[in-house]
Simulated assay, not measured.
Amino acid sequence: MTTPVSSPQTAIPQTAVPQTAMVLAAGLGLRMRPLTLDRPKPLIPILGKPLLDHALDRLAASGVTTAVVNNHYLGGMIVDHLADRRAPTIVASPEKRILETGGGIKHALPLLGDAPILTVNADILWLDGPTPALQRLAAFWDPQTMDALLLMMATTKSAGYEGPGDYHMDPLGRLIRRGESELSPFVFAGVQIVKPELFAQDTPDGAFSTNLIWDRAQEAGRLYGIAHDGLWFHIGTPDGLTECEELLAIGGVRAVAH
């Protein structure tokens, strides 16, 4: 299957970045222990700034006005940390029990509105290429043909990621999930534009993964991706955190990009 490292950017007219985002910050951070014994993973700092703030700063810079931030594990710390933030406006979505990615978004639907939203994992870090990634997503987004548009990262250019990948991508950007015994060239980079109503349509009331939504969109031919043209760091363990900070601190990120 053809797997380009970039997606076409001229077919879809420039559009505004969604005004509302869902920031997923409720995870337990078990693989990051002992660093997460006394704080939630999104509050772990990278070069002095918590991961959560890196994500929120990028949202604010791209024009997002409201960020719904869920919380569960040590959730009060996240609420306190965000109490003084003004851009974007923060709306808390506490979860009494862990609801996973899909369940967390479904739980927050009354706060998200009806228009397409951005979702961002609070425990990843990306650096933009020539055009900010959120603007590239908005430019490629076409609600007439897409239900979800995922930011993808080439596994060969990912820092700290050693998995088998998530998807193949055709020349038009359509995504096909890798088979059970396959390797695929792209991993989900933790950022997407998605239609929130998909999470209310025949979905579980408790915890479930966004994979359910993506699999349905793929079956309908409405799951698309765009390859990130900047840098992306998978920070799943303390060792991954150390690697990320070393690369950023010494300027070695160029080696990851090529």
Rank of each mutant, 00 (worst) to 15 (best):
I117Q: 01
V256Y: 13
T15W: 01
P196K: 01
A25I: 07
G190Q: 03
P8H: 04
F140E: 14
G102W: 00
H54A: 00
F233I: 03
R31I: 02
G221E: 12
D80I: 10
T65H: 09
P8V: 06
A227E: 02
A133R: 09
E245A: 08
M32Q: 09
S62V: 01
H228D: 04
A200F: 06
L35C: 13
L212P: 00
R58Q: 15
L35A: 13
T242W: 10
I176E: 02
M1V: 07
T156L: 13
E182K: 08
P88N: 05
G225S: 10
P130R: 09
Y167T: 00
D239Q: 15
P110I: 00
P18N: 10
S181G: 06
A26V: 04
R33S: 08
G225W: 05
S209C: 07
A189W: 11
Q201G: 09
I90A: 05
Q192P: 07
P40V: 05
K157Q: 11
F186M: 12
D128T: 07
I105A: 03
D215T: 15
A21I: 05
L151C: 15
L59S: 03
P8D: 04
E95F: 05
M77I: 12
G163S: 04
G165L: 05
A249K: 10
G173S: 03
T156G: 14
D80Y: 09
L247G: 01
P130D: 12
I124A: 02
D53M: 08
A139D: 11
L150S: 04
L231H: 11
K195M: 11
D38L: 13
R85E: 09
L35V: 12
L47C: 15
D128S: 08
L30C: 10
D53E: 10
P34M: 11
Q135G: 11
K41C: 11
G230V: 10
S7Y: 06
S6W: 07
G48N: 06
T10L: 14
V17P: 05
T155W: 01
R33D: 06
G129Q: 07
V253G: 11
V256K: 10
G104E: 06
A26M: 03
P13C: 06
D147R: 06
A108T: 08
H228L: 12
I90E: 03
H72W: 06
H234T: 02
P238F: 13
N71S: 13
H258C: 09
V64W: 05
I226T: 14
A108M: 07
T101A: 13
A255D: 15
T66G: 06
R216M: 06
P130Q: 10
I98C: 11
D202E: 14
A83N: 11
E243M: 12
R254E: 15
R178F: 03
W141D: 02
L37R: 14
S184L: 03
T237W: 13
Q192D: 15
L47K: 15
T2P: 15
L125I: 09
L231Q: 10
M152V: 10
R136N: 13
P130I: 07
L125H: 13
G190K: 04
L247S: 04
I46G: 08
A83T: 14
H107P: 14
W214A: 05
P196T: 03
V5E: 14
L59V: 06
R177E: 11
H81G: 09
T155P: 00
P45D: 09
P13G: 05
H107D: 15
P164V: 10
L247N: 02
A11W: 08
W214V: 03
A67T: 08
G165M: 03
A257Q: 13
